[in-house]
Each structure stands twice: as C-alpha cells, then as structure tokens.
Design a protein around this nucleic acid. Structure first.
Lengths: 167, 167
DNA sequence: TGCTTTAGTTCACTAAAGTAAATTATTCAG
DNA sequence: CTGAATAATTTACTTTAGTGAACTAAAGCA
C-alpha cells in the first residue's frame, strides 16, 4: 500500500465514522422526539448539571424567549424540570428529570454493550493506542470546529441576522 | 483501575468523540451555509454520483416537492447542478458542481492534515488496532442506528405524519 | 421604602421548510 | 397517434421555531 493509498483509506474511514456518528445521533434524536438543537441542549444540561435559563441562552446562542420554548419542549417530553432557584427566585434552574433517564439511557444501552464487547477484544497495548487515538481525534475535531467557527463569524453572536442566502 | 472505572472512562471517551464529531459536522454545515439535512443530502450526492430527484426523495424520505426546494438551496449555494437525463428527459440528474469542490474540500483540509500527522505517530501494530476499532465502531453505530430507526417506525415511511408531540 | 436592574415568560410577527395536490413535460403501451 | 403513466416543479397552505419587545416578578441599593 502506497502512502497516498494509505492516506485515502484513512480519510475514507474517517468519513465513514463521522457519517455513522452523525446518523446515529440523528436516530437517537428521532427516537427521543428531539430536534438537533434540543438534543444538544439536553446533553448540555446533563453534563453541566442544573443550568439557569440564562446560562442555557448563553451557551446555545438563543434569545431568552427562544430558551423558554426550548425548555417547554424538553419538559413536555419529560426530559427536564424547572425549579426556582432557592437563592434567587427570579432564576429558574433547569435540570434533567430523573424519571426520564431510563428512557434516555435505554437509547444508548445497546451501543454501550456492543462497545464494551468490542473493547474487550483488545490487549493492553492496543487499548492504549486506541484511547490515545480517540483522545487526539477529539482534540483535533475541537480545534477544527473552533477554527471554522472563528473563521465564519469574526464578530458578533450567532443569534441575530445569521442569514446567508441571496437571490 | 477497576473494570467499572475502565468502562466508565471508555463511555466518557465515546461520548466526547461523538459530541466532537457532531459539533464539527454542524460547524462545517454552518461554514458551508447548509442545514443538517442539506449537508447530508450533499454527502449522498457526492458519494453516490449523480442522482435523480426521485432517488434523492427516496433516500432522504422527503416528498418530491421538498426535494425541489432542497436542490434549489444546494444549487443556490453553488454546490450542485441540475442536468436533464439524456436518456429520459422527464428525469433530472443532480450532481456535484465541480467548481464548488475546492470550497467543500477546503473545509476539511485542516482536519485531513492533522489526522494524517496523528496517524504518522503510530507504528504498524497500533495503526492496525486503530483501524480495526474504527471499522467495528462504524459497524456497531450503523447496527444501532438501524435498530433504533426500526423500533421507532414499525411501518410506513418517515415522510408522513411523523409527529410525536402531544398537548 | 421606593427606584433600578435583572431573570424569565408571553405575545405578535416572521422565516424556513415541509406536505398535498395541481400542473407541465415526457415516455411508453396499444 | 392517442391515452395512461411517470418525473419533476409549482402552488397554496401548515407547522415549527426563531426574534424583538412588552410584561411580571424578584433582588439590591440608597
């Protein structure tokens, strides 16, 4: 195999992985009745613990009004809860509804199991290489995402006037 | 590190990879001025060569009318072309506009380079393990996607009546 | 205690993208 | 050559989710 061939094979594999991840992500969204943004927001809430509506607006780039709608949708499907912040009752804390977790986790159960079984087939050295590869790939993707986002919006927020179409 | 800890670490790494891929994909979409579905459709057209509008409707699950709009958007951004099928002039062939490729490829250039550099740091055995891991992960994701999609829609197509919300 | 600021929601409106059905162009069968 | 079938587009309408601004409630300061 030539260098060029190897590079092409790698790129193809990367493309297939990326596509598979994206399609899986979309399937999960459909399964849970969530749109891409809602799905991502739910992920944020899961990982960053309870968030205020304002914090969510900040990290999603939405207006406060839109966040109310977003949280309504998540709440309607039973994924999150609203609780007034005891420390500052103007604030509202949005957290994952513990009762919803089984459903959410259920969607990933099969994947988890299959991945564990796959990992069990590798020895120590191989596992280390794979972990290193994944860690570095994540870092690269994050860097490229930042680069691309920075290039696209030299100033201002995503929230307003983000139209590109002409004609 | 206990088995449980290792499993948790793996799952976390998988989650981070998935998130990174999805966010990168979204960033590319924004960069190219494409919505998720448009982006995916463009990928389809790229890989499966020229497609008729009907074929595109089939594989995206959209109605013919929606495909017209989809192709209009892709065309407006200069990514694809419409050409009447010489064999059957009712048909229209949608293909990637060769002039647009540089822009599209440009978005991935940085990623490509960084990934090549990363792969160069691994020896033969490690590379083999990584390739095996990626290949199997893709297969698992595809299987899980199919399973989830099948579970969500026991019958019929995505196209009609796919509403889940109540209230 | 009252004035100002902050947090979130509600309301009226807009834009995007989908469906269903009518329309146009072309092919194919008799 | 005519009529039925097929491919895509157009049109009218619907749904969804966003914005911006007005509004309500609570907090903090003088």
């Amino acid at each position: 195999m030539s260098d060029a061939e190897r590079a092409a094979a790698e790129a193809d594999l990367g493309w297939r992985l990326s596509t598979a991840v994206v399609l899986f992500h979309e399937a999960v969204g459909r399964h849970l009745g969530l749109r891409a943004l809602d799905h991502r927001a739910l992920g944020l809430i899961e990982r960053e613990g309870p968030l205020t509506a304002g914090a969510l607006a900040e990290s999603t780039g939405l207006t406060p009004g839109a966040v109310t709608g977003l949280v309504d949708r998540l709440r309607r499907h039973g994924y999150v809860r609203r609780t007034p912040d005891p420390a500052d009752r103007r604030r509202v804390l949005i957290s994952v509804d513990p009762d919803a977790r089984p459903d959410f986790a259920g969607a990933f159960a099969g994947l988890s199991k299959a991945m564990s079984e796959l990992m069990a087939t590798y020895d120590e050295t191989e596992t280390a290489a794979i972990a290193d590869y994944v860690t570095n790939t994540v870092a690269i993707l994050q860097a490229e995402t930042r680069r691309m986002t920075a290039a696209a919006e030299p100033e201002g927020t995503t929230a307003k006037g983000g139209r590109t179409a002409e004609e």
